[in-house]
């Protein structure tokens, strides 16, 4: 299952107003998206105007955490230093404008339950950093984890499918009996 598809599903469910943002980000490749989402640069343009503070957005939270998770699986595949160097070089080339062959979109595959718990924790942490309320954050995290768990081994495109039920082993919010 591709990270970007999963992100779009989650955002469509929890923060539909962010869909144009996700759609515009989907025009970029994964590396660039991550650079954009992590970048703090406030470059001033001559006639620019707007609000610099980043709002309580769901998209960066989900995308960054899922990308991290996907990268761990990829990292396990290419541990050699040369592969990393090649990836860095590719990024450099892309920055200077010569288009290197686009890297394949990141995929989530084979996450262990422990890793799923880690994903959940990271989402909660990042959401807290961005000022998202705890209840909303937990709903978000649960939804992501559930999708990963149910999406495993199935066809990736499930954007229009019904919302999957939460996984039985996922911890429930404390106020829910």
């Amino acid at each position: 299952m591709y990270v970007r598809d999963l992100v779009r599903e989650v955002v469509a469910e929890h923060a539909a107003h962010e869909l144009p943002l996700v759609d515009s980000l989907r025009k970029l490749d994964d590396d660039r998206v991550i650079r954009t989402l992590t970048g703090r640069g406030r470059k001033r343009e001559p006639l620019g105007f707007g609000y610099a503070e980043l709002a309580a957005l769901v998209t960066p939270v989900v995308w960054l955490v899922l990308d991290q998770a996907a990268r761990r699986t990829v990292d396990a595949a290419m541990e050699s230093a040369t592969a990393r160097g090649r990836a860095g070089m590719r990024r450099l080339l892309r920055r200077t404008g010569t288009r290197a062959p686009a890297a394949p979109d990141r995929e989530l595959a084979g996450l262990e339950p422990a890793e799923l718990a880690l994903v959940r924790r990271h989402i909660l942490e990042r959401a807290a950093e961005r000022g998202i309320g705890l209840r909303e954050a937990e709903a978000l995290a649960d939804s992501v984890v559930a999708r990963i768990a149910t999406g495993e081994g199935e066809q990736p495109a499930v954007a229009d499918g019904p919302a999957a039920p939460p996984a039985p082993d996922a911890p429930r919010p404390p106020d829910v009996a």
Binding site: P20, L25, K27, T36, R42, E45, G48, L54
Partner: peptide, 14 residues
């Protein structure tokens, strides 16, 4: 147009 690489809630004109 939309600049997907800018996460700020702003705009510019050129």
């Amino acid at each position: 147009r939309v600049d997907p690489a800018r996460m700020t809630s702003g705009a510019s004109v050129y």
